[in-house]
Design a binder for these strands. Structure first.
Lengths: 191, 191
DNA sequence: CTAGATTGTCTAGCGCTGCTAGATTCGAGC
DNA sequence: GCTCGAATCTAGCAGCGCTAGACAATCTAG
Protein backbone atom coordinates (compact mmCIF):
# COMPACT_ATOMS: atom_id res chain seq x y z
CA UNK A 1 0.00 0.00 0.00
CA UNK A 2 1.27 3.44 -0.95
CA UNK A 3 -0.32 5.09 2.04
CA UNK A 4 1.44 2.86 4.55
CA UNK A 5 4.81 3.48 2.92
CA UNK A 6 4.26 7.20 3.16
CA UNK A 7 3.19 6.80 6.74
CA UNK A 8 6.38 4.90 7.55
CA UNK A 9 8.62 7.43 5.85
CA UNK A 10 6.85 10.20 7.65
CA UNK A 11 7.25 8.54 11.04
CA UNK A 12 10.90 7.93 10.27
CA UNK A 13 11.41 11.61 9.52
CA UNK A 14 9.68 12.46 12.77
CA UNK A 15 12.20 10.34 14.65
CA UNK A 16 14.98 11.99 12.67
CA UNK A 17 13.83 15.41 13.84
CA UNK A 18 13.71 14.34 17.48
CA UNK A 19 17.14 12.73 17.25
CA UNK A 20 18.58 15.84 15.62
CA UNK A 21 17.07 18.06 18.31
CA UNK A 22 18.52 15.89 21.04
CA UNK A 23 21.96 15.80 19.43
CA UNK A 24 22.00 19.54 18.95
CA UNK A 25 20.83 20.15 22.51
CA UNK A 26 23.46 17.85 24.00
CA UNK A 27 26.17 19.40 21.84
CA UNK A 28 25.35 23.08 22.27
CA UNK A 29 22.48 23.38 24.76
CA UNK A 30 18.79 24.00 24.16
CA UNK A 31 19.39 27.65 23.32
CA UNK A 32 21.14 26.48 20.18
CA UNK A 33 18.22 24.32 19.12
CA UNK A 34 16.52 26.70 16.68
CA UNK A 35 14.09 25.84 13.94
CA UNK A 36 16.57 26.94 11.31
CA UNK A 37 19.48 24.84 12.60
CA UNK A 38 17.20 21.88 13.16
CA UNK A 39 15.75 22.15 9.66
CA UNK A 40 19.22 22.35 8.19
CA UNK A 41 20.35 19.30 10.19
CA UNK A 42 17.52 17.15 8.90
CA UNK A 43 17.91 18.67 5.42
CA UNK A 44 14.37 19.99 5.16
CA UNK A 45 12.92 23.46 5.38
CA UNK A 46 11.52 24.85 8.62
CA UNK A 47 7.81 24.39 7.81
CA UNK A 48 8.36 20.64 7.67
CA UNK A 49 9.05 20.67 11.40
CA UNK A 50 5.60 22.12 11.98
CA UNK A 51 3.92 19.37 10.02
CA UNK A 52 5.29 16.95 12.61
CA UNK A 53 5.13 18.99 15.80
CA UNK A 54 2.99 21.86 16.98
CA UNK A 55 6.04 23.91 17.92
CA UNK A 56 9.57 23.70 19.29
CA UNK A 57 8.33 22.93 22.79
CA UNK A 58 6.57 19.85 21.48
CA UNK A 59 9.85 18.64 20.01
CA UNK A 60 11.60 19.15 23.33
CA UNK A 61 8.75 17.33 25.08
CA UNK A 62 9.22 14.35 22.77
CA UNK A 63 12.93 14.33 23.55
CA UNK A 64 11.99 14.43 27.25
CA UNK A 65 9.73 11.40 26.86
CA UNK A 66 12.61 9.52 25.26
CA UNK A 67 14.65 10.51 28.29
CA UNK A 68 12.07 9.14 30.71
CA UNK A 69 12.18 5.78 28.98
CA UNK A 70 15.96 5.66 29.21
CA UNK A 71 15.98 6.85 32.81
CA UNK A 72 13.48 4.20 33.81
CA UNK A 73 15.69 1.55 32.22
CA UNK A 74 18.83 2.86 33.86
CA UNK A 75 17.21 2.96 37.30
CA UNK A 76 15.77 -0.54 36.93
CA UNK A 77 19.17 -1.88 35.91
CA UNK A 78 20.86 -0.18 38.84
CA UNK A 79 18.49 -1.42 41.52
CA UNK A 80 18.10 -4.94 40.19
CA UNK A 81 21.82 -5.55 40.64
CA UNK A 82 21.67 -4.67 44.34
CA UNK A 83 21.31 -7.29 47.04
CA UNK A 84 20.12 -5.19 49.99
CA UNK A 85 17.60 -2.36 50.21
CA UNK A 86 20.32 0.10 51.25
CA UNK A 87 22.50 -0.95 48.35
CA UNK A 88 19.56 -0.52 46.02
CA UNK A 89 18.94 2.97 47.37
CA UNK A 90 22.56 3.94 46.90
CA UNK A 91 22.67 2.43 43.41
CA UNK A 92 19.51 4.32 42.46
CA UNK A 93 20.92 7.63 43.70
CA UNK A 94 24.20 7.12 41.86
CA UNK A 95 22.48 6.04 38.66
CA UNK A 96 20.16 9.05 38.76
CA UNK A 97 22.99 11.52 39.27
CA UNK A 98 25.09 9.82 36.62
CA UNK A 99 22.21 10.04 34.17
CA UNK A 100 21.78 13.75 34.86
CA UNK A 101 25.50 14.37 34.48
CA UNK A 102 25.91 12.37 31.30
CA UNK A 103 22.84 13.80 29.55
CA UNK A 104 22.51 17.36 30.83
CA UNK A 105 20.36 18.61 27.96
CA UNK A 106 18.11 15.57 28.17
CA UNK A 107 17.77 16.14 31.89
CA UNK A 108 16.88 19.79 31.24
CA UNK A 109 14.10 18.79 28.89
CA UNK A 110 12.76 16.32 31.44
CA UNK A 111 12.99 18.31 34.64
CA UNK A 112 14.02 21.92 34.17
CA UNK A 113 12.50 23.39 31.03
CA UNK A 114 8.91 24.49 31.26
CA UNK A 115 6.80 21.79 29.70
CA UNK A 116 3.19 20.82 29.41
CA UNK A 117 3.90 17.20 30.22
CA UNK A 118 1.65 16.42 33.17
CA UNK A 119 3.14 14.72 36.19
CA UNK A 120 1.28 12.70 38.77
CA UNK A 121 -2.09 12.58 37.04
CA UNK A 122 -4.04 9.88 35.27
CA UNK A 123 -2.76 11.14 31.94
CA UNK A 124 0.89 10.92 32.89
CA UNK A 125 2.66 8.98 30.11
CA UNK A 126 3.82 5.48 30.95
CA UNK A 127 7.61 6.10 30.76
CA UNK A 128 7.30 8.86 33.33
CA UNK A 129 5.32 6.65 35.65
CA UNK A 130 7.87 3.87 35.20
CA UNK A 131 10.74 6.12 36.25
CA UNK A 132 8.84 7.33 39.29
CA UNK A 133 7.85 3.77 40.12
CA UNK A 134 11.52 2.76 40.37
CA UNK A 135 11.94 5.42 43.07
CA UNK A 136 8.76 4.33 44.77
CA UNK A 137 9.78 0.71 45.07
CA UNK A 138 13.36 1.34 46.12
CA UNK A 139 12.33 3.70 48.88
CA UNK A 140 9.61 1.38 50.17
CA UNK A 141 11.70 -0.57 52.74
CA UNK A 142 12.56 2.69 54.51
CA UNK A 143 9.12 4.27 54.51
CA UNK A 144 6.08 3.94 56.70
CA UNK A 145 2.81 5.68 56.10
CA UNK A 146 4.61 8.53 54.38
CA UNK A 147 5.82 6.27 51.58
CA UNK A 148 4.67 8.60 48.80
CA UNK A 149 6.11 11.67 50.49
CA UNK A 150 9.47 9.99 51.06
CA UNK A 151 9.60 9.02 47.39
CA UNK A 152 9.01 12.60 46.35
CA UNK A 153 11.49 13.88 48.91
CA UNK A 154 14.22 11.49 47.84
CA UNK A 155 13.70 12.37 44.21
CA UNK A 156 13.59 16.09 45.01
CA UNK A 157 16.80 15.90 46.98
CA UNK A 158 18.60 14.20 44.13
CA UNK A 159 17.15 16.71 41.71
CA UNK A 160 18.31 19.60 43.88
CA UNK A 161 21.78 18.13 44.26
CA UNK A 162 22.23 17.55 40.55
CA UNK A 163 20.87 20.89 39.35
CA UNK A 164 22.75 22.98 41.89
CA UNK A 165 25.95 21.05 41.31
CA UNK A 166 25.64 21.41 37.57
CA UNK A 167 25.28 25.19 37.69
CA UNK A 168 28.33 25.45 39.95
CA UNK A 169 26.32 26.30 43.02
CA UNK A 170 27.80 23.49 45.14
CA UNK A 171 31.40 22.50 45.84
CA UNK A 172 32.22 20.25 42.87
CA UNK A 173 34.53 17.99 44.87
CA UNK A 174 32.09 16.76 47.50
CA UNK A 175 29.37 15.15 45.45
CA UNK A 176 29.90 11.65 46.84
CA UNK A 177 29.92 12.91 50.40
CA UNK A 178 26.56 14.65 49.98
CA UNK A 179 25.08 11.58 48.36
CA UNK A 180 26.31 9.26 51.10
CA UNK A 181 24.86 11.60 53.68
CA UNK A 182 21.46 11.52 52.00
CA UNK A 183 21.47 7.73 51.88
CA UNK A 184 22.54 7.65 55.49
CA UNK A 185 19.70 9.92 56.59
CA UNK A 186 17.09 7.83 54.83
CA UNK A 187 18.36 4.40 55.85
CA UNK A 188 18.78 5.35 59.51
CA UNK A 189 15.66 7.50 59.41
CA UNK A 190 12.86 7.82 61.89
CA UNK A 191 10.37 5.41 60.43
CA UNK B 1 29.80 69.52 42.29
CA UNK B 2 28.14 68.79 38.98
CA UNK B 3 29.96 65.52 38.48
CA UNK B 4 28.73 64.05 41.74
CA UNK B 5 25.15 65.01 40.95
CA UNK B 6 25.43 63.29 37.58
CA UNK B 7 26.93 60.30 39.30
CA UNK B 8 24.01 60.14 41.73
CA UNK B 9 21.42 60.48 39.00
CA UNK B 10 23.17 57.79 37.05
CA UNK B 11 23.20 55.40 40.00
CA UNK B 12 19.55 56.14 40.61
CA UNK B 13 18.71 55.26 37.04
CA UNK B 14 20.66 52.03 37.41
CA UNK B 15 18.49 51.10 40.37
CA UNK B 16 15.42 52.06 38.35
CA UNK B 17 16.42 49.64 35.61
CA UNK B 18 16.95 46.79 38.05
CA UNK B 19 13.64 47.49 39.78
CA UNK B 20 11.82 47.60 36.44
CA UNK B 21 13.40 44.31 35.38
CA UNK B 22 12.38 42.67 38.62
CA UNK B 23 8.82 43.97 38.41
CA UNK B 24 8.46 42.85 34.83
CA UNK B 25 9.91 39.43 35.62
CA UNK B 26 7.62 38.89 38.60
CA UNK B 27 4.61 40.05 36.61
CA UNK B 28 5.18 38.18 33.35
CA UNK B 29 8.25 35.95 33.79
CA UNK B 30 11.79 36.44 32.59
CA UNK B 31 10.83 35.65 29.00
CA UNK B 32 8.89 38.91 28.97
CA UNK B 33 11.87 40.92 30.16
CA UNK B 34 13.15 42.22 26.84
CA UNK B 35 15.40 45.19 26.23
CA UNK B 36 12.60 47.04 24.46
CA UNK B 37 10.00 46.57 27.18
CA UNK B 38 12.54 47.40 29.83
CA UNK B 39 13.65 50.54 28.01
CA UNK B 40 10.06 51.64 27.60
CA UNK B 41 9.33 51.03 31.27
CA UNK B 42 12.20 53.24 32.41
CA UNK B 43 11.40 55.74 29.66
CA UNK B 44 14.80 55.60 27.97
CA UNK B 45 16.00 54.02 24.77
CA UNK B 46 17.57 50.58 24.68
CA UNK B 47 21.22 51.69 24.38
CA UNK B 48 20.94 53.35 27.78
CA UNK B 49 20.57 49.90 29.34
CA UNK B 50 23.93 48.94 27.89
CA UNK B 51 25.65 51.96 29.40
CA UNK B 52 24.69 50.55 32.82
CA UNK B 53 24.96 46.80 32.24
CA UNK B 54 26.99 44.65 29.90
CA UNK B 55 23.88 42.79 28.75
CA UNK B 56 20.50 41.47 29.88
CA UNK B 57 22.11 38.67 31.88
CA UNK B 58 23.99 41.23 33.94
CA UNK B 59 20.69 42.91 34.78
CA UNK B 60 19.21 39.59 35.86
CA UNK B 61 22.34 38.92 37.93
CA UNK B 62 21.88 42.23 39.73
CA UNK B 63 18.27 41.34 40.45
CA UNK B 64 19.55 38.02 41.79
CA UNK B 65 21.97 39.76 44.12
CA UNK B 66 19.11 41.83 45.48
CA UNK B 67 17.29 38.56 46.05
CA UNK B 68 20.18 37.09 48.02
CA UNK B 69 20.14 40.07 50.35
CA UNK B 70 16.44 39.69 50.95
CA UNK B 71 16.67 35.93 51.37
CA UNK B 72 19.45 36.28 53.92
CA UNK B 73 17.27 38.70 55.89
CA UNK B 74 14.22 36.47 55.71
CA UNK B 75 16.18 33.42 56.86
CA UNK B 76 17.81 35.31 59.73
CA UNK B 77 14.43 36.57 60.89
CA UNK B 78 12.93 33.10 60.74
CA UNK B 79 15.65 31.36 62.70
CA UNK B 80 16.13 34.06 65.29
CA UNK B 81 12.53 33.66 66.43
CA UNK B 82 13.01 29.95 67.13
CA UNK B 83 13.85 28.64 70.61
CA UNK B 84 15.17 25.17 69.76
CA UNK B 85 17.50 23.93 67.02
CA UNK B 86 14.73 21.80 65.54
CA UNK B 87 12.35 24.72 65.53
CA UNK B 88 15.00 26.84 63.85
CA UNK B 89 15.51 24.19 61.19
CA UNK B 90 11.80 23.97 60.52
CA UNK B 91 11.44 27.76 60.43
CA UNK B 92 14.33 28.03 58.00
CA UNK B 93 12.83 25.44 55.69
CA UNK B 94 9.42 27.09 55.72
CA UNK B 95 10.87 30.56 55.19
CA UNK B 96 12.97 29.34 52.29
CA UNK B 97 10.04 27.67 50.55
CA UNK B 98 7.80 30.65 51.20
CA UNK B 99 10.41 32.97 49.70
CA UNK B 100 10.63 30.81 46.58
CA UNK B 101 6.85 30.67 46.26
CA UNK B 102 6.27 34.37 46.80
CA UNK B 103 9.04 35.55 44.47
CA UNK B 104 9.25 32.92 41.73
CA UNK B 105 11.02 35.13 39.20
CA UNK B 106 13.48 36.34 41.78
CA UNK B 107 14.14 32.74 42.76
CA UNK B 108 14.69 31.87 39.11
CA UNK B 109 17.29 34.58 38.75
CA UNK B 110 19.06 33.39 41.90
CA UNK B 111 19.00 29.63 41.44
CA UNK B 112 17.67 28.49 38.08
CA UNK B 113 18.77 30.81 35.29
CA UNK B 114 22.27 30.35 34.02
CA UNK B 115 24.41 33.02 35.61
CA UNK B 116 28.05 33.88 35.97
CA UNK B 117 27.66 34.64 39.66
CA UNK B 118 30.27 32.47 41.35
CA UNK B 119 29.22 30.37 44.30
CA UNK B 120 31.46 29.01 46.99
CA UNK B 121 34.64 30.81 46.03
CA UNK B 122 36.57 33.68 47.53
CA UNK B 123 34.88 36.08 45.11
CA UNK B 124 31.38 35.09 46.12
CA UNK B 125 29.46 38.32 46.89
CA UNK B 126 28.66 38.96 50.53
CA UNK B 127 24.84 38.63 50.29
CA UNK B 128 25.20 35.17 48.84
CA UNK B 129 27.57 34.13 51.58
CA UNK B 130 25.17 35.54 54.17
CA UNK B 131 22.27 33.45 52.89
CA UNK B 132 24.39 30.33 52.85
CA UNK B 133 25.69 31.15 56.30
CA UNK B 134 22.15 31.09 57.69
CA UNK B 135 21.84 27.52 56.46
CA UNK B 136 25.24 26.64 57.79
CA UNK B 137 24.50 27.83 61.32
CA UNK B 138 21.02 26.38 61.55
CA UNK B 139 22.17 22.94 60.43
CA UNK B 140 25.16 22.92 62.77
CA UNK B 141 23.49 21.28 65.83
CA UNK B 142 22.60 18.27 63.71
CA UNK B 143 25.90 17.82 61.91
CA UNK B 144 29.16 16.19 62.81
CA UNK B 145 32.24 16.22 60.63
CA UNK B 146 30.09 16.47 57.52
CA UNK B 147 28.75 19.88 58.55
CA UNK B 148 29.41 21.49 55.18
CA UNK B 149 27.96 18.57 53.25
CA UNK B 150 24.81 18.53 55.36
CA UNK B 151 24.35 22.24 54.76
CA UNK B 152 24.57 21.72 51.02
CA UNK B 153 22.30 18.70 51.17
CA UNK B 154 19.63 20.49 53.19
CA UNK B 155 19.71 23.45 50.84
CA UNK B 156 19.65 21.17 47.79
CA UNK B 157 16.68 19.24 49.13
CA UNK B 158 14.70 22.43 49.67
CA UNK B 159 15.73 23.65 46.25
CA UNK B 160 14.61 20.39 44.67
CA UNK B 161 11.30 20.43 46.51
CA UNK B 162 10.51 24.01 45.55
CA UNK B 163 11.50 23.78 41.90
CA UNK B 164 9.77 20.47 41.24
CA UNK B 165 6.66 21.59 43.10
CA UNK B 166 6.54 24.85 41.18
CA UNK B 167 6.67 23.17 37.78
CA UNK B 168 3.86 20.81 38.81
CA UNK B 169 6.12 17.82 39.10
CA UNK B 170 5.07 16.97 42.67
CA UNK B 171 1.63 16.51 44.25
CA UNK B 172 0.67 20.07 45.16
CA UNK B 173 -1.29 19.05 48.26
CA UNK B 174 1.52 17.36 50.19
CA UNK B 175 4.11 20.09 50.49
CA UNK B 176 3.96 20.28 54.30
CA UNK B 177 4.23 16.51 54.64
CA UNK B 178 7.39 16.39 52.52
CA UNK B 179 8.91 19.26 54.47
CA UNK B 180 8.15 17.66 57.83
CA UNK B 181 9.68 14.45 56.63
CA UNK B 182 12.89 16.22 55.65
CA UNK B 183 13.13 17.94 59.03
CA UNK B 184 12.46 14.62 60.70
CA UNK B 185 15.23 12.87 58.80
CA UNK B 186 17.78 15.51 59.68
CA UNK B 187 16.88 15.93 63.34
CA UNK B 188 16.79 12.20 64.02
CA UNK B 189 19.72 11.61 61.71
CA UNK B 190 22.72 9.38 62.17
CA UNK B 191 25.22 11.89 63.44
C1' DC C 1 0.59 8.10 -21.70
C1' DT C 2 -1.24 12.17 -20.55
C1' DA C 3 -4.44 15.74 -17.74
C1' DG C 4 -5.98 17.13 -13.57
C1' DA C 5 -6.24 16.88 -8.70
C1' DT C 6 -3.85 16.29 -4.52
C1' DT C 7 -0.26 16.17 -1.63
C1' DG C 8 4.04 17.69 -0.12
C1' DT C 9 7.63 21.14 0.18
C1' DC C 10 9.81 25.52 -0.22
C1' DT C 11 10.40 30.60 -0.57
C1' DA C 12 9.57 34.66 1.41
C1' DG C 13 8.11 37.34 5.02
C1' DC C 14 6.01 39.07 9.66
C1' DG C 15 6.94 40.68 14.12
C1' DC C 16 9.83 39.79 17.53
C1' DT C 17 14.66 39.30 19.94
C1' DG C 18 19.65 41.16 21.82
C1' DC C 19 22.73 44.32 20.68
C1' DT C 20 25.43 48.39 18.39
C1' DA C 21 27.27 52.14 14.99
C1' DG C 22 26.70 56.57 13.87
C1' DA C 23 23.88 60.72 13.97
C1' DT C 24 21.96 64.05 16.96
C1' DT C 25 20.74 66.60 20.79
C1' DC C 26 21.85 68.44 25.25
C1' DG C 27 24.32 71.05 28.70
C1' DA C 28 28.51 72.82 31.07
C1' DG C 29 32.21 76.26 30.74
C1' DC C 30 33.99 80.23 28.53
C1' DG D 1 25.74 83.18 22.73
C1' DC D 2 29.16 79.71 21.31
C1' DT D 3 31.94 75.59 21.46
C1' DC D 4 32.89 71.22 22.55
C1' DG D 5 32.32 66.88 24.89
C1' DA D 6 29.13 63.90 26.88
C1' DA D 7 24.72 61.85 26.90
C1' DT D 8 21.13 59.96 24.26
C1' DC D 9 18.50 58.44 20.35
C1' DT D 10 17.43 56.66 15.66
C1' DA D 11 18.05 53.18 12.71
C1' DG D 12 19.67 48.91 11.62
C1' DC D 13 21.92 44.02 11.73
C1' DA D 14 21.50 39.24 12.28
C1' DG D 15 18.87 35.88 14.16
C1' DC D 16 14.53 34.04 16.43
C1' DG D 17 9.58 31.24 16.12
C1' DC D 18 6.23 30.67 13.10
C1' DT D 19 3.13 30.85 8.75
C1' DA D 20 0.79 32.23 4.15
C1' DG D 21 0.96 31.42 -0.32
C1' DA D 22 3.63 29.89 -4.35
C1' DC D 23 5.49 26.01 -6.44
C1' DA D 24 6.81 21.16 -7.52
C1' DA D 25 6.28 16.35 -7.18
C1' DT D 26 3.25 12.62 -7.07
C1' DC D 27 -0.87 9.89 -7.51
C1' DT D 28 -5.39 8.95 -9.89
C1' DA D 29 -8.42 8.75 -13.68
C1' DG D 30 -9.42 8.71 -18.48
Amino acid sequence: MVESRKERERAERGRLIVAAARELAEAEGWDAVTTRKLAEKVEYSQPVLYSHFKNMDAIAATVALEGFEELAGVLRAATSAATTPTEALRALARAYCAFATEHPALYDAMFVRRTDLTFGTGETPAPMRAAFEAFHETVEPFAGAEHEALTELFWSSLHGLTTLARTHRLRPTHHEERLDLLIDLITTGSS
